[in-house]
Design a protein around this nucleic acid. Structure first.
Lengths: 193, 193
DNA sequence: ATATTATCTTAACATAGATTAAGAGTATTT
DNA sequence: AAATACTCTTAATCTATGTTAAGATAATAT
């Protein structure tokens, strides 16, 4: 059963007690998501933390020209949410869309707050989870302000080798902040070396 | 006394009990930091979370050409740390340097872990603190991959109006990921409008 | 199976931003 | 108060990256 995948995810941090597992199970909903289906759209409030059992998502903004800018990919055993919108209850500027058919577990804000309040272990585990995501983001910012597009692309390939196979280059280009045409040129340069 | 500044900082989240205040006070060290003094250098392990009572710091990497790339500024009532190095005990690639004479409170890892373990409120409060920093960083990444240098500069001025007065433009340029010369050109363009 | 839509590539041209160099103005240090 | 070290600006030139357009291939939907 899919809840077990979430429970073993927490085993990497402070493992849950039976009581905590039960309370968590009672507050979580499983969903199948089709490819290209959205679990968050611009102007909506993000009401869930979504844990991915299987599949792949992207979270992105769309600018005035209609160009997508991908903030995050997330696959199996990762959380995805617009946590700004989630915590402020303000409309999001972001979309979260399934790139592959996916299965997810979702928890609503009121339920998450319940867990935080009654079982401090969730505060602990999510503190550590978000610390790790923070570290990743910091590295990405550093790359963005200090490296060329080619370096960023190489880093992406090294850091997410499995992801790069599952994604079209268009979306990798969007993630590293360049156009698909320029990525194509970069790939051509690399292959000549 | 400076500890009170830290205690009121926590009041914005879940306020501390007297016991928690006492335990916190016992585990924190106050330091005066001179301008240009480093509280973290490359190759050192980052051993502290540093809370700023007064003053201003920058955290940055230096590339092969000797160019600084500023990841973060932090001033009064903010935390600064290389949390990647702090949690992994691995040498940092970053410097944290005082831009102004400063007063800080520092807590060592073992002491922070003690507080986390014995007083779950610290897990809670730091979870929320880092969530907010995560949201800020996400916005910065989005800007970096989707906006021009001029837009990033304008956003910086709007988002940190007080900071922009305390910083030389060189450092603002580094933070938004451009050269000082190009920032100068941008400022010239803006003033012509 | 066909039609449609997305992806990838290439090339010519355009532009944002980097580099180099130099000079003037401000702070900081001695 | 002088000397030194930063900061800011301008301009010329260079380079990384974007834009537009088009064709080829691959994937998806009907």
């Amino acid at each position: 059963m899919t809840l077990n995948k979430l429970i073993s995810h927490f085993d990497k941090y402070l493992p849950l007690s039976s009581k905590e597992k039960e309370e968590l199970g009672d507050r979580i909903t499983e969903k199948k998501i089709r490819r290209r289906q959205f679990i968050l759209s611009k102007y909506e409030v993000c009401r869930f933390y979504t844990f991915i059992i299987s599949g792949l998502f992207k979270m992105y903004a769309v600018d005035k020209n209609g160009t997508e800018h991908i903030l995050q990919f997330a696959s199996e055993n990762e959380w995805i949410s617009d946590i700004g919108s989630f915590h402020s209850d303000k409309p999001s500027r972001l979309y979260i869309e399934a790139i592959e058919p996916s299965v997810v577990l979702q928890i609503e804000k009121s339920n998450l707050l319940y867990l935080y309040t009654h079982f401090p272990k969730f505060d602990r585990n999510f503190r550590v989870i978000i610390e790790n995501k923070y570290i990743e983001l910091e590295n990405r910012v550093l790359q963005n302000i200090s490296s060329t597009a080619e370096e960023r692309y190489q880093t992406f390939l090294e850091q997410y080798p499995q992801l790069s196979n599952r994604l079209p280059n268009t979306q990798i280009a969007s993630y590293i902040g360049i156009t698909p045409e320029f990525l194509s040129k970069i790939r051509n340069n690399i292959s000549k070396k």
